[in-house]
């Protein structure tokens, strides 16, 4: 079961983490470590790109909540993009749609952080 994780720095100090393949209990630590590593570098504006995601169990959902808590504790956030219909159903079951900001694409996600900057001025 393969998992790919790629991160890319964007403007506004936003980091986009593209998660592809399958997130299971077996490999979810890799995902958690990536988020922890970015937080240690002071990156708290995280966007998780789920376009390439085929499968995510509750282990992966736990990592998303972990990242959300860490980011928000430092005035940042963890936002989601490219949520597929099948993943949306999982998010509805767990009511995660109420907790996470879900945006359609990278551009919108980066823009959403600059809007947060303006509103906090």
């Amino acid at each position: 079961m393969s998992l790919t994780i790629d991160s890319q720095q964007h403007e506004n100090n936003v980091v986009v983490i593209a998660v592809g393949g399958e997130v299971t209990f077996e490999n979810s630590d890799q995902f958690r470590e990536k988020i922890d590593q970015l937080c240690e570098q002071g990156k708290y504006r995280l966007v998780i790109d789920l376009a390439g995601l085929q499968y995510m169990s509750s282990a992966g959902m736990g990592v998303l909540v972990h990242g959300l808590k860490k980011a928000r504790a430092k005035e940042g956030d963890l936002r989601l993009i490219n949520l597929s219909d099948k993943m949306r159903r999982v998010f509805l079951i767990t009511q995660f749609t109420h907790h996470f900001t879900v945006l359609p694409n990278i551009e919108e996600a980066i823009k959403s952080f600059s809007t947060s900057d303006e509103s906090s001025r």
Binding site: V65, L68, K69, R72, F96, F100
Partner: peptide, 10 residues
């Protein structure tokens, strides 16, 4: 979400 405990979710 900040107060959510992930235990039992599965």
């Amino acid at each position: 979400a900040e107060e959510r405990n992930i235990g039992g979710l599965g």
